[in-house]
Design a protein around this nucleic acid. Structure first.
Length: 454
RNA sequence: GUGGUUGUAGCUCAGCUGGUUAGAGCGCCGGAUUGUGGUUCCGGAGGUCGCCGGUUCGAACCCGGUCUUCCACCCCA
């Protein structure tokens, strides 16, 4: 059998893990700096927890887990003969792999509401699964790093999340990141003003594609979705908004004069953007983007999306927003939440492409002891014990060299792993120590060895 | 879900319009030379050319199907 793994999944080498840990540690540090504490939820949930939360498209992409045992025996025979997958699947599958971290988190909040102190701040770094077709920066198993606050409607949270994004990308030394911000209330306000409330989703999805398919493309798609020509005519000014955020907000304010909701969105955005501008960001740029929609149906206020530096062609590396009633479907009303997510795998690709991972330390021993002759093994093992007691990582090449070639192989092993110190042999309690960087070699005692390598 | 793309030794790839025992470099293993590696040289192992079927006297190369890779759309991190 030829070994293989399912498409869209990956093995990670020691080096890749080192790089990934560097990224997640940077994110974790920032999360706790901002007062978030980690929680974890199971890899799979009851299907009813997940299904219907992400729209039809989302449901299609959820990995369903087949019931164990004789899962067909209890299914009605007519149903099986009907070959109706949608009706049969809930009968044979009651669990599913989580699709994101937000919905399981909402479930968690409701289920543990009596133990939780609100406002509740948590972070979660775990893999999620989607039955998608893989492509660049898109996998079927990937990691999300989410931070959310529930139980506070304060816009200060939005401001803090923007700062959190900025902190992480600053610490990763990633320059040129753009944090795009919009407000769902503005989008529904626009839909209201142009009289197309019921087509809000189609409208926003089309608008979202502006930078991808251009003005004509957006208009074409809106027509295809049945949005009236009058409505589109009213929207047109949006398609070429210009100027700084202040000017853009003023245009929006005029456009949305008849929509209370829309005006509220404008004010919320104005507050957040003004505050952030006054406080200042380290490396990231905050940008108002009225076309920013995001697919998820549960956002109700601010919407965030993080774009990688322009030189890297990849989808968004993070996103988030405010959802006023996510916990409502699980029976807990009026709990507002806001959160953001970092796409670990995409951030990795961006950093790698920009060469920002090259300086990351890879775990390896500091010292290696070569194994050229049987007789000295015991004294070497003793030295190893002493070095390890001092916290110096050290290993010995396991196989004794029987020939010149095998000695050569040991040296090659050292070189390949870039181990800085090599002990080639022991004579009368004196070690022959070679420092690979300088190529200098000297004879030293155990004490000297420890002080050099420490 | 739609469209395209890829698949030859462990890795990177050759293999002209179908023709006898399928090649290279690197790597790997053994050996020689090098004071303890990084040089040079010699030798060796390793592939039913993704899989199934078809066309043909004959296919790695043509056709169909299938799986896989990567990419774009949809959607998204």
């Amino acid at each position: 059998m030829k070994p293989s793994i399912p498409k869209g999944t990956r093995d990670f080498s020691a080096k890749e893990i080192a790089y990934r840990n560097y990224i997640t540690n940077t994110i974790k540090e920032a999360f706790s700096l901002f007062g978030f504490a980690p929680i974890e939820t199971p890899s799979f949930e009851n299907s009813e927890t997940l299904l219907g939360k992400y729209g039809d498209e989302g449901d299609r992409l959820i990995f369903k887990i087949l019931n164990s045992g004789d899962y067909l025996s209890k299914v009605d025979e007519h149903l099986i003969k009907s070959k109706d997958s949608i009706k049969i699947s809930p009968k044979i599958s009651e669990k599913a792999l989580r699709y994101d971290l937000t919905v399981p988190f909402a479930r968690y909040v409701v289920q543990h509401q009596s133990e939780i102190m609100f406002p509740f701040k948590r972070y979660q770094i775990q893999p999620v699964w989607r039955a998608d077709r893989p492509q660049k920066g898109r996998f079927r198993e990937f990691y999300q790093c989410d931070a959310d606050v529930v139980g506070s409607k304060s816009l200060l949270q939005e401001i803090e999340f923007i700062q959190l994004y900025d902190t992480v990308f600053t610490n990763l030394k990633l320059e040129g990141v753009t944090i795009k911000i919009n407000n769902r209330k503005i989008l529904s306000g626009i839909a209201e003003v142009i009289g197309e409330q019921d087509k809000l989703i189609d409208f926003t999805v089309a608008l979202d594609k502006l930078d991808k398919i251009g003005e004509d493309g957006v208009i074409e798609e809106m027509i295809a979705k049945g949005i009236s020509k009058e409505a589109i005519e009213k929207v047109k000014p949006l398609l070429h908004l210009s100027g700084d955020s202040k000017e853009q907000l003023n245009v929006l304010k005029n456009l949305l004069a008849d929509s209370d909701q829309g005006l509220k969105g404008v004010e919320e955005l104005r507050y957040v953007i003004n505050s952030v501008e006054k406080i200042g960001l380290e490396t990231a740029k905050l940008q108002l983007d009225v076309t920013l929609a995001r697919g998820l149906n549960y956002y109700t206020g601010a919407i965030f999306e993080v774009a990688a530096p322009k030189s890297v062609k990849i989808g968004s590396i993070g996103g988030g927003g405010r959802y006023d009633d996510l916990t409502g479907i699980f029976g807990l009303k009026d709990v507002s939440g806001v959160g953001i997510s970092f796409g670990l795998d995409r951030i990795y690709l961006v950093l790698e492409e920009l060469g920002l991972l090259n300086d990351v330390e890879i775990e390896k021993p500091k010292v290696i002891i070569l194994n050229f002759e049987e007789e000295t093994i015991l004294s070497k093992l003793k030295a190893i014990q002493q070095l390890r007691l001092k916290g110096i990582s050290v290993e010995m090449y396991p196989d004794v060299a029987q020939s010149n070639n095998q000695q050569k192989k040991q040296w090659k092993y050292v070189e390949k792993r870039a181990i800085p110190f090599v002990i080639s042999s022991v004579e009368n309690d004196q070690f022959i120590l070679k420092e690979m960087d300088t190529n200098q070699q000297k004879l030293c005692s155990l004490e000297e060895l420890i002080s050099i390598c420490q």
